[in-house]
Amino acid sequence: MAKITFITADNESITVEGTSGSVMELAVNNNIKGIDGDCGGVCSCATCHVHVESEFVAKTGQAEELENDMLEFDDLTNEYSRLSCQLQVSEDLDGVVFKVAK
């Protein structure tokens, strides 16, 4: 099980627990504001955009090419950007903090 924290645009911090699925699904199931997951996780909508808090980048790893291409044309993108639908919930993500981009 992993404890994952989301910080929304209005600075609310919400910690939730998950065992499987994607980080996007975890966020949507917990009604995290700013994460919609419109395309259901196929990397087509960018409504699951998060910024990984810098100290956790080693845990999340880097985005793949198609994910990066998607982020390239998003105005909210920075070097810590990820599409949370492309991140799987696992023990490895325990303790990670994501800032919701929108």
Binding site: V42, C43, S44, C45, E64, D69, M70, Q86
Partner: peptide
């Protein structure tokens, strides 16, 4: 079951499809 599928059928960017949720 294509997993990564960055299609643009609902457009892209600022003017992306307003009705996409309904259509989906």
């Amino acid at each position: 079951d294509r997993k990564v599928n960055p299609h643009v059928s609902f457009g892209f960017g600022t003017h992306n499809c307003l009705g996409a949720t309904h259509a989906r």
